[in-house]
Design a protein around this nucleic acid. Structure first.
Lengths: 129, 129
DNA sequence: TAATTAATGCAACCGAGTTGCGTTTTGCAA
DNA sequence: TTGCAAAACGCAACTCGGTTGCATTAATTA
């Protein structure tokens, strides 16, 4: 069992994710921590942070991976991933709608591991009226 | 306005999608229609079929794009995409759970365009007992 | 059957993510 | 405080899904 270490690069990435109000992709994150480390390192840091349950990974509707802070995870002592995500087709930002939990019931013999619930549309900020 | 044409390659791709019980990726489809056309053509055919509402595109939980037949779309005269998808972590297959529709209500000022609802886990076929 | 243009093949390209390996750095323990 | 094992890193090269440009082929329809 390998115990995780803290590095400035890892902290920088985590800070950016926690600071952001929406989920960030690896390219966006690399841009924001540029100079701190190599792009490959960002990938490896993200994998580790996900494994350590410090952040969670969201698949956007276009297939790109994004990373967001775990808001409820600390309090619940586990990952709470039964909430909706909203993906704006204008600004491309994806955010967690933590309040909205969804009830699903599957036919028998389906064993649920994780939920991926994303709604695409236009977010309040991008609404033109 | 360009009117679509029917080609053997297009028909071959559509046949494979309709024949399958689960959603297929471009690489899988290209493998199945191998010899019929180039791999780039498969991409273009898939784009066209989606645009013509003959198939629909599903983002898998790993970010890969998959294509499935539109089961309810003909009868409803439009795309019915408010149903769940199930993605098996064992066999990697993704299927539509057409019966299960989901009710979601967002905070105001969010304009919904499309729903992406996928559950990952183990499908009945892959259950070991 | 000829003309229009949608569809194709091919080659080159792009971008996200991965791998291998030698080097640096962290954290614990002597 | 220093030494050491291994976690973390940098760099280069690679993989793979998907895209683009352009010249050629083939489906429609008149």
């Amino acid at each position: 069992m390998s115990l995780p270490r803290n590095t400035k690069a890892k902290q920088a990435v985590l800070d950016e994710i926690n600071r952001s109000t929406y989920a960030l992709s690896q390219p966006e994150l690399f841009e924001r921590v540029k100079g701190t480390c190599d792009r490959v390192t960002v990938y490896r840091i993200l994998d580790r942070l996900v494994a350590e349950n410090k952040i969670h990974r969201i698949v956007n509707v276009d297939g790109t991976l994004n990373y967001a802070a775990c808001i409820q995870c600390d309090t619940h002592n586990m990952h709470a991933h039964d909430h909706l995500h909203f993906s704006c087709i204008e600004c491309k930002k994806i955010e967690c709608l933590s309040e909205q939990s969804v009830q699903v019931q599957l036919p028998s013999h389906y064993q649920i591991k994780e939920l991926f619930l994303t709604i695409s549309g236009i977010c309040p900020t991008c609404q033109v009226d």
